[in-house]
Design a protein around this nucleic acid. Structure first.
Lengths: 103, 103
DNA sequence: TTCTCATGTCGAAAAATATCGACTATTTTG
DNA sequence: CAAAATAGTCGATATTTTTCGACATGAGAA
């Protein structure tokens, strides 16, 4: 039994906690599933495809960006979001590798 | 843009939402990291290795079991938990595969 | 510049989740 | 059987998260 992690968790792992928390919400999952492969969507698009208000969608987009799931790019007065599929795959693979080594 | 998921999400995906939500909590992450490879721990063990009360640890263990991350086995008056590493790897791999196909 | 559109932010309210002590059930020990 | 050990449940409280309307900002259009 490891007692090391009872109080503190390495920063590297906290990043994954943040990632999983971001993915573990149904509304955010809905937002992510709205993206077609390689597609770019702005806040208005995503709000229309949702049942939530714009500030709320904006809030979820912020969390998804901070977790590294989405990429944010400003174009004129619009802000476009894109799914960071490659980065996401890489990070999930890291977790799988860890589990495989400590199985 | 897919509008299909705006309201409803397939049951198959909700299961992943539950999984990620379970993994996306620092206290639960601490609990999971306490397990050494293949190790089996009971509630008392895990409570001692934690800063939380026993009912709270019990609560987190319940969520982790419901999400399929831990396995629960009753032995006499003790209840032992084991990390379902294989199942976890398999499910994360499914997500990776989906992302790869829709990249 | 003035107007409109696209977003972000802020504060408050609502909803969900986490936390704990007290109590209960069950099993083993003396 | 009585006592101790192990763990689940319940109800109340605390904390966190979600949600929205109102306001602020900044960029393009008229």
């Amino acid at each position: 039994m490891r007692k090391t992690y009872a109080q503190t968790i390495p920063a590297e792992w906290q990043q994954y906690s943040q990632l999983f928390a971001a993915l573990g919400d149904l509304e955010r999952q809905r937002i992510l599933l709205t993206f077609e492969p390689g597609e770019t969507l702005n806040v208005t698009d995503l709000t229309r495809a949702s049942s939530l208000s714009r500030p709320t969608v904006s809030h979820h987009l912020k969390l998804l960006c901070e977790a590294g799931v989405l990429e944010r790019e400003k174009r004129g007065r619009e802000v476009h979001f894109r799914l960071r599929a490659d980065a996401l795959i890489e990070r999930l693979q890291t977790v799988i590798d860890y589990l495989g080594e400590h199985r």
